[in-house]
């Protein structure tokens, strides 16, 4: 934090106080936001006796990796972790395959009725996941897809459509029309133009879509909890809840499982947060 830069900001009487106020407020906000994460990580490294206690320990008095050993050896967390990875990555791929052509058609080709189609897709954002869980469950059961990853992947992919479409759509409508005109002159058909011109230019948009879909699939609880119950199919969010144990006292194991679940989220989020934030803003602010 360059001191000189801050000095420039301080122009009026009372600005010192305001500056201090803002910084203090900011620090308090960060503490409240980050404290639960701090607990999560420290609890995963503390023996149980320092978790279930009435004494407040600001840092772990004793560090142990027992909780991680327990969840990975007895809990088979590795398999469940891989389930989550598989479901999330396939959701990302499927949603890109579905959304890219649609966003391209609406942003660039603009066939008749585009406006209607776009409004229709966006209205679907109003559909709450809980409403569809019962008919989807019954349909998937009839199709024999309960306890398969496919059931989760197609559901997640569909739920990412409205938002990703909105985010990616703004990238495609920003592409200059002349590019596609000249491509057509050179004998490109519309599909070649998509692959050769639009795709490379909208890579940041695809990054946003991909990271958003990944987080959606990785974080979902409702569908994962309803559609999968076997260990072979379960994903992390459902498994972590179970780690706390029948008596609800294995907080250390829970914290270890939760830490394992959160780390990929933090990695994806820190790598892509610039894109996600700009995508969210493009989606919600628009203009």
């Amino acid at each position: 934090m360059g001191k000189g830069r801050n000095k420039n900001k301080i122009r009026h009487r009372g600005d010192h106080l305001r500056f201090a106020g803002i910084i203090l407020f900011n620090l308090v906000a960060l503490c409240i936001v980050l404290f639960p994460f701090y607990w999560l990580i420290t609890a995963s490294l503390k023996p149980d006796k320092y978790i279930i206690t009435r004494t407040f320990y600001p840092y772990p008095p004793e560090v142990t990796f027992d909780h991680f050993v327990t969840v990975f050896t007895f809990g088979n967390l590795l398999q469940i972790f891989m389930n989550s990875v598989k479901v999330s990555l396939l959701t990302v791929i499927f949603s890109l395959i579905a959304i890219v052509p649609a966003a391209y058609a609406l942003g660039v080709l603009k066939p008749k009725g585009s406006r209607f189609i776009s409004r229709f897709i966006l209205s679907l954002q109003m559909l709450p996941g809980i409403l569809l869980v019962i008919p989807l469950y019954m349909t998937l059961q009839k199709l024999g897809l309960i306890n398969t990853h496919m059931s989760l992947i197609i559901s997640y992919t569909t739920f990412t459509i409205p938002f990703c479409f909105l985010m990616l759509g703004s990238y495609y409508s920003a592409l200059p029309k002349e590019l596609f005109e000249s491509a057509r002159m050179d004998g490109c058909n519309s599909f070649q133009a998509l692959l050769k011109i639009a795709l490379p230019l909208t890579l940041p948009g695809m990054m946003t879509t991909a990271s958003y879909s990944f987080l959606q699939a990785w974080n979902d609880f409702l569908y994962a909890n309803t559609f999968t119950s076997t260990q072979k199919a379960r994903t992390l969010t459902v498994e972590v809840i179970r780690l706390v144990g029948t008596w609800g006292n294995k907080w250390g194991d829970l914290a270890a499982g939760a830490t394992v679940t959160v780390i990929p989220v933090i990695v994806v989020f820190l790598l892509a947060n610039k894109y996600i934030i700009s995508g969210l803003t493009a989606g919600a602010v628009k203009g």
């Binding site: 994460f37 947060n273 934030i277």
Partner: peptide, 13 residues
């Protein structure tokens, strides 16, 4: 980025 974390992390956790 830090303030966004509660939103980015699974609700289950």
């Amino acid at each position: 980025a830090l303030l966004m974390l509660p939103w980015a992390v699974p609700i289950a956790i």
